[in-house]
Design a protein around this nucleic acid. Structure first.
Lengths: 358, 358
DNA sequence: GGATTAAAGTGCTATATAGCACAAATACAA
DNA sequence: TTGTATTTGTGCTATATAGCACTTTAATCC
């Protein structure tokens, strides 16, 4: 390699490697540092310095004891060691929603532990996205049907991992919960206590999570030989207020359910609040089951029976998948469905006697 | 310098230098690399590697042939149009705390509107702070006594505005609420309904906000000619669970208060939950007043009587102060105290008759 | 054919040594 | 006192060498 008096040798090595990569003469893994030094006629430490600079640029990545690899082209973007969490601004309450704030806390814990900063963003205007995505190495997005186009836009610029719901475009990795089977557990549990007349408050309609929870409720009833009664279904929207409205609805039915399954904890808490206001006792007069297992669910008296979503596992899994993508690696499993389990606490018991004999 | 088997020597040198800089033992220029190597007993190249890493972090800068200097981190910063919100990781629940998530939502709205990204961070380790602050133009910090040193560290690097509590160092701008007078309003209102026996649940002890709310409670009573009874004060910590415990405490008193003022809404909700569980009605049997006005406070049945903190105004004010500082302007008013007002809703009424005649 | 051991390959840390180009400090001569 | 030359100090580039911890590959043995 022709030496140049003014250019440092390590810069010459950098330029040579950049050129090899650009011309696809190296396409996966570099020769080892010692071999490269021998091949180019420079010292081992000079070659190491050049390779390290290319790593810092994002062109290469190193795996100790395994080798030095070409980074995915998308990873050629200037690394900022910052990721983003996107929660659409149309979600009621944004991060004031207890579930999303738990998710966010968990992601922040992972990010901090591995030396990343975490940006929160919710505005979906093109200009805002462009501006923010320039600063990010990748995004974890709480996904809904309504934002699939947004997720496509993000994906064109940075790696994206979807959580809560997967995306129609299956090239986008996702971490979700098996809502369907988790909701069946709630039905099974209530039936095991003797409940036959079980109401359901739905979540949002444009989310697979919401749909799957509802499907799990119906499937669970059918499995128990109980006919699905549309009158026992109230359309909620995951908010405390809609839980209050839902309880009101069920109380006004001629034949009240003896238990209500809510598609999330906020609605369950709203329902309990309303029942108390009407002089009913939980679970003596009506059993309530939630979903998510937010902090308050454990703290109320009695503590809420609910499906516990593995928040830390979702965050950890999504984060690790994202950093793998950022570093140019491919994922072994692009779609992960984690299990959630029912936790029986104090807001459920066998139906009041009058309900059973009726 | 004590060697550690697992920590690379160059990292030990980094930490040593960071520490020297933090303690102002080096304030302008470092000793030369050869001298430093001799002083510390490590090799020249090891010291060079450490110094280079600190240069990459933004702590130092080198001038070939002249030396290595402490970076004036404010002046040298590249603008990123990103601000940070800091909430110490020791705050229970982090952003799952309804008040802080509302604050965060409001800051995010301001930031997005004015073309800024928002990073959330809670970890206070030196390395994390250094790494994150490099990326930020400024910080809004929810302040407590325990993090005053942290705020000093941040201030050395970026402009900082404190919210919730001001800082002993009055050069640091702040936006707070007039907790004292707001809490007096709660006492006045309950007295106007006929309450004479009023309990209080305190917030955190290391916050001026908590102290001022408690001071307002006492001052309000004295103003009404009511003696302050220490038995009517329960030490809470702003959590729902401590509200439950507080209600338990008051119920066990020989002479129960007819009303309870809670230093925040989460404790108020916990108290209500417990009272319902014990078969008492709010406000028929006991009146409850909160502080903050979180979303759920309006949604429960009956809706909570509470002091409404002007969240959007706090966020807007703090954000505008911060961007002024970022842009190099000085502030007309460095310390802003906003008013909060009591909102009388459904959890308060005149005491039950038996309480009045007793 | 499978298990075990040894060898080779990988990036990583660390040190010693040498000399470059340049700036600042010091010594000396006019 | 000023100008010039020399010395010292600064970060920079470069190389050689050594060994660590771990992974992969090859050789050997049963």
């Amino acid at each position: 390699m022709a030496a140049d008096k003014t250019t440092p040798k390590y810069v010459l090595v950098e330029d040579y490697l950049r050129n090899q990569i650009k011309k696809n003469r190296i396409s996966d893994r570099l020769p080892g540092e010692r071999a490269l030094a021998a091949e180019l006629g420079f010292s081992y430490m000079t070659v190491r310095k050049a390779v390290e600079n290319l790593v810092n640029e994002g062109l290469l990545y190193k795996v100790p004891t395994k080798g030095t690899f070409i980074a995915d082209q998308k990873a050629n973007k200037t690394r900022t060691r910052t990721i983003g969490y996107f929660l659409d601004s149309r979600i009621a309450g944004g991060l004031s929603s207890p579930y999303y704030s738990m998710i966010f806390n968990a992601i922040e814990k992972q990010a901090t532990r591995q030396g990343y900063s975490l940006v929160y963003f919710s505005d979906s205007s093109d200009s805002n996205l462009q501006m923010i995505l320039q600063k990010l190495d990748g995004v974890i997005a709480s996904s809904f049907l309504r934002i699939e186009n947004l997720i496509q836009q993000m994906k064109a610029i940075v790696p994206v991992v979807a959580i809560d719901n997967s995306v129609a475009d299956k090239t986008i990795p996702s971490v979700i919960v098996d809502n369907f089977n988790a909701q069946i557990q709630s039905v099974d549990y209530l039936c095991s206590l003797g409940h036959q007349h079980i109401g359901f408050m739905t979540g949002l309609e444009d989310s697979d999570a919401g749909k799957n929870r509802y499907a799990g409720y119906k499937s669970g009833l059918i499995k128990q030989g109980i006919e699905v009664d549309p009158a026992l279904v109230f359309r909620g929207n995951y908010t405390f207020g809609s839980g209050v409205s839902g309880a009101q609805y069920f109380l006004e039915l001629e034949q009240r359910p003896s238990a209500i399954i809510c598609a999330n904890d906020s609605m369950a808490l709203g329902a309990i609040s309303k029942l108390h206001q009407e002089g009913l006792e939980v679970p003596a007069d009506m059993s309530i089951v939630g979903f998510d297992d937010i902090d308050i669910a454990r703290q109320i008296t009695p503590p809420l029976t609910t499906v516990s979503v593995p928040i830390d596992e979702i965050a950890s899994c999504a984060f690790n998948m994202l950093t793998s993508l950022i570093e140019g690696r491919t994922l072994e499993n692009r779609h992960v469905a984690l299990e959630a389990h029912l936790v029986a606490r104090g807001t459920s018991r066998e139906p009041a006697k009058s309900e059973v004999t009726a």
